[in-house]
């Protein structure tokens, strides 16, 4: 099965190693190379000067300036703040479809992003929606790669609460800003809008990767069928006629367009992906274009 394959091939790892995660929000306005200094130690990044006021730490007084101007200035350094990368994987049962499954694709993508983050010493947190009890999913540093991959391998499809509930729970638990990559099929009967609003409200840099299986894009159905929802056992009786299929495709297109528009209007980046898309091409091509990695 596809799940037996390694999430990341050595070739992909080699390519990802040269990449870097970029946040549009947290470090907006910063110049190139600034991220590099963070790796050399804390509080060495000069930011600005300000007048000394009694009580300031004398260690930060710029003595050279005092010598020249005979005035006390405090040298300000930018506070160190590591980049938080969150990968939110929808592990609902609906993700267990397709070949490879959408969940496998999601795990692969999360692994790739996580690896990029780990390489750049970012704080990588991988969560499945609704699985709030698991705390051992924060990774930092390259050495955490195998632990992360192990964690990802352990993710299996399970019954989850609704998308909105799960995202709300995630947002309440994680107050830090950062990049959130939500990998989901957004197939929630309660709608995806509330979930995304929660993410926006946390002022996170949100990327929504909308994963759809090839079977969903073009269902190979025929005859009289009773469709059973794998999550809630809801049924829909259909007779697969040409008209109905055309209608389904129209509905799907409307659904995808609606999600895309919803995200764009709120400053989120929306990406539609098929389970058959290769992660490598996604990372090196599409995500790079959209500015998530470079």
């Amino acid at each position: 099965m596809s799940t037996a394959l390694p999430l990341l091939s050595p070739e992909l790892l080699a390519r990802l190693q040269r990449m870097e995660l970029v946040s549009r929000k947290v470090f907006r306005g910063r110049m190139k190379g600034e991220r590099r200094s963070t790796r050399k130690g804390q509080s060495v990044e000069f930011a600005d000067f300000r007048n000394y006021v009694p009580g300031d730490d004398l260690r930060f007084v710029d003595w050279n300036t005092y010598a020249r101007l005979d005035r006390l200035f405090l040298k300000l350094f930018l506070e160190e703040e590591d980049l938080h990368v969150f990968a939110l994987i929808d592990a609902s049962r609906s993700m267990d479809f397709g070949d490879p499954t959408k969940l496998y694709f999601a795990k692969q993508l999360a692994a790739a992003l996580g690896f990029v983050g780990l390489v750049r010493s970012d704080r990588v947190r991988i969560e499945t929606l609704g699985n709030s009890a698991d705390r051992a999913n924060v990774f930092r540093g390259r050495q955490s790669l195998w632990r992360m991959l192990d964690y990802l391998e352990s993710i299996t499809p399970e019954d989850t609460p609704s998308l909105a509930e799960a995202v709300k729970s995630f947002c309440l638990r994680n107050s830090g800003r950062g990049i959130v990559v939500l990998i989901s099929d957004l197939m929630d009967k309660g709608g995806y809008e509330d979930a995304l609003r929660w993410l926006v409200a946390r002022r996170m840099d949100v990327y929504v990767v909308h994963v759809l299986a090839a079977e969903e894009l073009d269902p190979p159905l025929e005859g009289d069928l009773r469709l059973v929802d794998c999550e809630d056992a809801d049924t829909a009786e259909i007779t697969a006629t040409g008209a109905l299929m055309a209608r389904y495709r129209r509905t799907l297109a409307a659904f995808v367009d609606g999600a895309s528009e919803f995200c764009t209007r709120r400053g989120m980046v929306y990406m539609r992906a098929s389970n058959e898309t290769s992660v490598e091409s996604l990372m090196t091509g599409y995500l790079r274009q959209r500015g998530l990695v470079r």
Binding site: D188, K189, L227, T235, T251
Partner: peptide, 9 residues
């Protein structure tokens, strides 16, 4: 009967 990811659409 046919199991599908979601009957939403």
């Amino acid at each position: 009967p046919l199991e599908v990811p979601s009957t939403y659409l």
